[in-house]
Amino acid sequence: MFKRLMMVALLVIAPLSAATAADQTNPYKLMDEAAQKTFDRLKNEQPQIRANPDYLRTIVDQELLPYVQVKYAGALVLGQYYKSATPAQREAYFAAFREYLKQAYGQALAMYHGQTYQIAPEQPLGDKTIVPIRVTIIDPNGRPPVRLDFQWRKNSQTGNWQAYDMIAEGVSMITTKQNEWGTLLRTKGIDGLTAQLKSISQQKITLEEKK
């Protein structure tokens, strides 16, 4: 169930391209415009997507990853294993993690069937560096609404905000991946996880038929 919630949630996290980005210092504006741009692209490019579902990787690479804190999220997933990894191991892992996100997020976007969304009203940021933004996803086919909290983090150097995690039903996506990959990290280390991520990233994206 959580895996499905995570995939549905990713439908609204794909941010804007650099040329049309919203105010990078306001995570609420980023979330709002990102959702609108993403849904528009999914709707307008269905012919290309249906002809070649792996085209979704391109959308992810162009529109999402430049505005997601990939390395920060990847380091959180590694936890204690990050500090013990060599620079070469980290570089290989982050490259594999990025390719994994292209496949995983692309597969999530393949679930698009006309969903709509509501974003919580903007709250004062103050001096906060981590801000959760509640998004409610509404399914046109009558499924119950899904309420999610996207975690946005302020870059201490640039002042810009980027998304790095999502919490559904009190469970963090980062925590879920830590639990899912924990045994592999304990037995085969970061190299074993890197190899698995490379394998997963090679899987073809498949479209979910409308139910």
Rank of each mutant, 00 (worst) to 15 (best):
Q48T: 11
G170R: 01
K43T: 14
T158W: 05
A92F: 10
M7I: 11
I49S: 09
K177C: 14
M6H: 00
G79P: 00
I130V: 06
S17Y: 11
N52C: 04
V146T: 08
K188D: 06
T136F: 12
K128P: 04
T38W: 05
T187M: 06
P140H: 14
D127P: 15
V135Q: 03
I49N: 11
K210V: 10
S201R: 11
A88E: 12
E209V: 13
E99N: 14
D23L: 13
Q118T: 12
E209I: 12
D191Q: 09
K198D: 13
T25Y: 15
I167E: 04
Y105K: 01
V60E: 00
R134Q: 01
L193F: 06
R90E: 02
I138E: 07
E180M: 04
M7G: 02
Q48K: 13
K211E: 09
Q157D: 02
Y100S: 09
P66Q: 06
G126A: 12
A51H: 14
K37L: 14
L197S: 10
G79D: 02
A34M: 15
S199A: 12
Q89R: 04
T187G: 08
A120G: 09
T25R: 10
R4L: 14
A195E: 11
F150I: 03
A75W: 00
K29Q: 14
Y105N: 02
N44L: 14
T183Q: 07
G182P: 15
Q62M: 07
S17N: 13
A18R: 12
Y28P: 03
E208W: 06
R98T: 11
K210Y: 13
L11K: 01
L101G: 11
Q118V: 12
M111G: 07
R147M: 02
Y82R: 01
L185H: 09
K71G: 04
I138P: 15
P144S: 08
L125D: 06
A110V: 15
L64K: 01
K43P: 04
G142F: 10
V135E: 03
I190H: 08
P53W: 03
D149G: 02
I119G: 09
N160M: 14
Y55W: 07
S172N: 02
P87S: 12
T187F: 07
Y82T: 01
P124C: 06
F2N: 01
K102A: 15
K198E: 13
Q202R: 09
Q157S: 05
S17F: 14
T58A: 09
A34C: 07
E209F: 12
E99D: 14
T20Y: 08
K43F: 09
K177V: 14
F2T: 02
Q203H: 10
L125M: 14
A120N: 12
N179A: 12
S17C: 12
F150N: 03
S199N: 12
I49C: 14
A18W: 13
V8M: 13
V135F: 02
T58M: 11
A22Y: 07
R50M: 11
E45Y: 04
A73M: 06
Y105E: 01
L184D: 13
V171H: 00
G159T: 09
R41N: 04
T194I: 12
S84M: 14
N155M: 00
L76K: 02
A19L: 02
Q162G: 06
T86Q: 10
I130W: 02
A120R: 15
R90H: 08
D40I: 13
D139E: 15
G106T: 08
L11G: 01
T129S: 12
A14R: 03
T206Y: 15
T176G: 01
K29E: 15
L65H: 07
G106R: 00
Y117F: 12
Q89M: 09
E122M: 06
G142K: 14
W152N: 03
N52Y: 10
A73K: 02
A19I: 02
T25G: 13
S84Y: 12
A51C: 12
Y105S: 01
A96L: 10
A96Q: 10
A163G: 12
G74D: 02
L101K: 04
G114A: 10
S84C: 12
M111Y: 04
G170H: 06
I205C: 15
E180F: 01
F39A: 01
N141M: 11
V70N: 14
D139G: 12
D191Y: 07
D165V: 01
S156Q: 03
T183Y: 11
W161A: 03
Q46G: 08
K3D: 01
D127Y: 06
N26V: 05
L65P: 01
D165H: 01
Y93H: 05
I200A: 07
L125A: 08
A195Y: 10
E63D: 08
M31D: 00
G159Y: 08
A195D: 10
P124I: 14
T129I: 10
V131G: 04
G170L: 01
V131A: 08
M31L: 05
Q178H: 07
E208F: 11
P87N: 14
L125P: 09
Q103W: 07
K102D: 09
Q36G: 08
T58W: 06
R134H: 04
P66E: 12
L42E: 07
K210T: 15
S84V: 10
G170Y: 04
L65K: 04
I137A: 03
G79M: 01
G126Y: 15
D191E: 09
E208S: 14
V146I: 06
V171S: 00
N141V: 13
Y81I: 04
Q151S: 08
I130Y: 06
R143N: 03
I174K: 02
Q162F: 03
L30P: 07
L30E: 15
K128D: 07
P144I: 08
D32H: 12
A92M: 07
T58I: 10
Q115K: 03
Q46F: 09
W181A: 15
K43A: 14
L64A: 01
P53E: 13
N141K: 07
P121C: 09
R147E: 01
L207Y: 14
L109K: 02
D149M: 05
E91D: 13
V146R: 01
V60H: 01
G74E: 01
F94H: 13
L101S: 15
I167S: 10
L42D: 01
Y55K: 11
K37T: 13
R153L: 01
F2M: 14
T175V: 14
R90P: 01
T175A: 06
S172T: 06
R41A: 08
V68S: 11
A110S: 13
Y82S: 01
R134P: 02
M111I: 14
D61Y: 04
F94N: 13
R50W: 09
L64M: 03
A85W: 02
A163K: 05
P15D: 08
I59N: 02
G114R: 06
T206A: 11
E45G: 05
Q24A: 13
K128H: 04
V135H: 01
N52F: 03
L56C: 04
G142E: 05
F94E: 05
T176P: 00
F2G: 02
R4G: 03
A85N: 08
V60N: 03
Q202E: 07
A104D: 04
G192E: 15
G142I: 07
I133V: 12
A92K: 09
V131R: 09
D165K: 00
V12I: 11
S201V: 12
D149A: 03
N155Q: 01
P140N: 09
E208R: 07
V12S: 04
P132I: 12
G182W: 02
I167P: 06
L125R: 11
K210Q: 14
L185M: 10
Q24D: 13
R134A: 01
D54E: 11
E63G: 03
I137E: 02
K29G: 10
S199R: 11
P144V: 08
